[in-house]
Design a protein around this nucleic acid. Structure first.
Ligand SMILES: [Zn+2]
Ligand SMILES: [Zn+2]
Ligand SMILES: [Zn+2]
Ligand SMILES: [Zn+2]
Lengths: 136, 136
DNA sequence: CTTGACCCTAGACCATAGTCTAGGGTTTAA
DNA sequence: TTAAACCCTAGACTATGGTCTAGGGTCAAG
């Protein structure tokens, strides 16, 4: 019933290095310790690693996951609105980054389009010229 | 005609810290040094900082900018095709990242949609439940 | 001749998410 | 009893793009 770190590692496919790293980051702590100081994890801890992995898959950072876990643990004192708000803020941040990436993509495509791409020397390459242009 | 680092910094809006950092990264080197060891920059160096800033704006990393500068310097020996290929590879990478962001955005939106967002306790919050779900 | 503004090098520090090593101790099985 | 396999802590190291400090040297004006 209690797992040592190596067992948890193979069960969750998270390395023991990473599990200890998550512990230092305050994401997970073993349910107890053996007499010799070995970490001992319970089934709840296994679930917790699952939560962390799920949250990572949807793009949350470790800090955000820490906050989500806090919400989870104290969920009786939090409302659905609190949790949804947390997710919606993340959606906004993701949207922001996507807009920036779209801008970048368009700029790059414009550069690519203007370049002949031939085997002629790049002496007059429009890409290099565009990047060299002074915007004063 | 020759600028000291502080002058280049205010001219380009790049801090002297960052200029020295770029130098360590091999992006730019002063045209010369004064007797007392001060960095002295030429007009070409000003252009070079402009190139770096332009390339940053379209999303290139410092390593990529280093490679682009290499292309620029040896442009007589490179073809337009080489330069365009470099940009197209970057576009592919950007597309990859955008796909991943879209996946994340959709997941987050699905989570948000399923949650009632009300002021009821989050004890049965579908978001927390979805993240807790085991995918074995 | 001192003050302030500038310059120098070398190196520490920040976030982010780990990975790995050194140098020990423990457990288990042959 | 000894070797393998596991565990422990503490801390270094990776990439990325800087920022900042410590502890000096230089230069110009008053
Ligand atoms: Zn061309
Ligand atoms: Zn071209
Ligand atoms: Zn609800
Ligand atoms: Zn909810």
């Amino acid at each position: 019933m209690m797992l040592k770190i190596g067992e948890l590692a193979s069960k969750t496919d998270v390395s023991h290095h990473t599990l200890r790293f998550y512990e230092r980051q305050g994401l997970i702590a073993p349910a107890g310790r053996s007499d010799s100081g070995y970490r001992l994890y319970s089934d709840l801890d296994v679930d917790r690693v699952g939560f962390i992995l799920s949250a990572k898959k949807v793009g949350f950072t470790l800090l955000e996951i820490q906050q989500l876990l806090e919400l989870e643990i104290t969920k009786d004192d939090n409302s659905c609105g609190d949790v949804k708000c947390f997710v919606d803020k993340k959606i906004s941040a993701v949207n922001q980054r996507m807009l920036e990436m779209k801008r970048i993509k368009k700029s790059l495509q414009a550069l690519s389009k203007a370049c002949c791409g031939g085997s002629v020397p790049a002496t007059q390459c429009t890409i290099l010229e565009a990047l060299s242009e002074q915007k004063n």
